[in-house]
Write a protein that binds this DNA or RNA. Sequence first.
DNA 1: ATAATTTGCCTAGGACCTCTAGGTAAGCCT
DNA 2: AGGCTTACCTAGAGGTCCTAGGCAAATTAT
Lengths: 188, 188
Amino acid sequence: MARAGLTADRLTQAAAELADEVGFENVTVSALARHFGVKDASLYSHIRNAHDLRVRLAVLALAELADQVAEAIAGRSGKDALVAFAAAYRRYAHEHPGRYAATQMALDPDTAATSAAGKHAEMTRAILRGYDLWEPDQTDAVRLLHSTFHGYVSLERAGAFHSHPRGVEASWTRALDALDTVLRSWPA
Amino acid sequence: MARAGLTADRLTQAAAELADEVGFENVTVSALARHFGVKDASLYSHIRNAHDLRVRLAVLALAELADQVAEAIAGRSGKDALVAFAAAYRRYAHEHPGRYAATQMALDPDTAATSAAGKHAEMTRAILRGYDLWEPDQTDAVRLLHSTFHGYVSLERAGAFHSHPRGVEASWTRALDALDTVLRSWPA
DNA sequence: ATAATTTGCCTAGGACCTCTAGGTAAGCCT
DNA sequence: AGGCTTACCTAGAGGTCCTAGGCAAATTAT
């Protein structure tokens, strides 16, 4: 019998594709083993357990998201950067729903620090260079931006905005205008 | 043998308590059966399946959340209402993490309409009476508020803010100040 | 008060997922 | 070619979800 050539990285990559197809909560060890045509038990030499697999997936997704966002805001500042950041963030969530769901996993502090979760916050901070904000206002603003972006795409995906005809896209644009206003005139 | 006296409502109520203890994703038919000292199969005359159980739990949580928020903003308006709304929303999420997680379930449009999900949006709209906003700005603002509140408590629970020493409470207060500013000077 | 009906909970069992222990064989190194 | 590492296997235990069919307790009718 030829071997499938599994590694932790290949498993994680396949898990990411699987997540986008069938949803993050349906990423199982069995499904992944099926995809590679091997038995479930064979995966346990590469990953510790199902939770470990999901954590690896989360770390992968966080890194991808951080990369896309970094590319989007490169060379921009102020509202330009804000809009580009938001667009990249939301686009990633839409194109990779399973991966995006993975980024919301509760990671233990160690993993979070090692992974790109920190890079993500740093990225958000880069946006603020175009605005006149300093600590601790900067941290407050980062948290507000992150919350709003995550909250919006999360509710959007949950279908919370379907009850009203007003375009989701239009509201999003207005939200960004509002955030820009807030950042320019941050209350002292 | 004496009967346990199960009903769909009692199961849902117990599921809610279970969710707050062990997390929404660990609310299983088996665990619930164990709690009542009956066999798994016995629950299926009251609920259709595991998904149905979780939907009922979500509807319960949405109703409770709407009630608490409604009580909080009663007799207030403007920033007073905004702050009270936010506090009630966040407090519910903290005191009932499992139930709150349930409110984020993707409900099919029918269920969402029947449940208190609509009431929730209506509630948010009530806040805006103190500000000078009309359609479609009102809908945009409702979505922004909802996103920010949900995003903040969601990230807070995921531990996204632990990496930085700045107090989570302080940032929250500043976020509310910022939202108040935005609502008072909504960009035309 | 007893008979008829409903229904709450049961046993039995299949399908799927998670994970461990221990075995075989494929591929690399000398 | 022989030896070592390791990728993948079989076997099996335990958990969750759910269906089918049965008995007995509670409710209603007589």
